[in-house]
Amino acid sequence: MAFDYEQYLRPGKLPHIWCPGCGHGIVMKGLLRAIDRCGLQKNNTAIVSGTGCASRLPGYVDFNTLHTAHGRAVAFATGIKMARPEMDVLVVGGDGDGIAIGGNHFIHACRRNIDMTYVLMNNYIYGMTGGQFSPCTPTGDRTSTTPYGNPDPIFDVAKLAIGAGATFVARTTAFHATQIDKLITAGLRHKGMAVIEVLDDCPTTFGRRNKFRSVVEMMKRLKDIAVPVQTAGQMSPEQLQGKILTGILHQEHKPEYCDQYQQVIARAQTAAKS
C-alpha cells in the first residue's frame, strides 16, 4: 500500500524546490516513514535545519520546524533539547552546512552524546550557491571553484562522528530507499547522538561537471559503490577499493547528555538544601 505521506506534509507546499532527480526528496520520504514507524507525535517533535538545499526540508513537514542560519542547526537543536528534553529532536542538512561551517557544533554534539537524530544528506557539493566544493567533494573532482580538480582531501562523515563520540552512526545512499527509513528508525530509537549519513546525488551542480550524463547514472553509481558492512568483512582490500560501507557502522551505549544534566540539577538541589 502507498504510504500516506500527506498526513505529515504541510498542505499546498508541493512540488518542492529540489531539482529533478535530487535525492533529498527520497530522503525526506524515508524520514517520514521512520517518524511514522517510531510513532513520533507531531507536537512533540522538532525538526531543525541550517541553510542549503537539504535545509529546506523542514518547511514541507508538519512538525515544530526551524530553518536556521548556515551551519547552526545542531546548536539551535541543542537549545531545544536541553530546554525540553521530552521533545524528539531531529536535525537535517547537507554536507557543507553540517561538516564545514557547522563542523564545530557537529563534533561537540557528538561528544556530548545528546539525544538527537541527525540526517546528513551528503551530495558532495554546495548546491544552492551553484556548485562549489565542500569538505566531502572527492579529491580531483570538478566544481565551480575547483575548475582544475579538487586539491582537498575529504572528510569521512561517519568516521568523524564516531571519532567525536556519537553513539549511533550509520550510512546509506539515496538509491537504497528502504534502508533510509530503517536506519533513521534505528537512530530515532537509539538514546544518544545518532548520525545517519545518506550519500545523495546532485545532478544539477555536481553531476554535470563530473561526467555523469544523467540522474540515473548517478543513482547507479550510488548502487554500485555501496557495500553492506556485514559483507565487507569477506572482501579483499582490492575489492573494497572505491566502495563505501553501508548499514549501522557503530553503536554503543554511553550516558546521554540531558540525563547527565538532570543529575547536575539533582546535585545542585541537594547541595542547596543542606
Binding site: M1, A2, F3, Y5, L9, L14, P15, H16, W18, P20, G21, C22, G23, H24, G25, I26, K29, G30, A174, F175, A177, T178, M219
Partner: peptide, 15 residues
C-alpha cells in the same frame, strides 16, 4: 513499491 520509494517528488503512487 520501488518506484514510489525512489520518487523524489512524491509523484508516484502505488495502490
Amino acid at each position: 513499491m520501488l518506484c514510489e520509494l525512489r520518487c523524489p517528488d512524491f509523484a508516484v503512487r502505488v495502490y
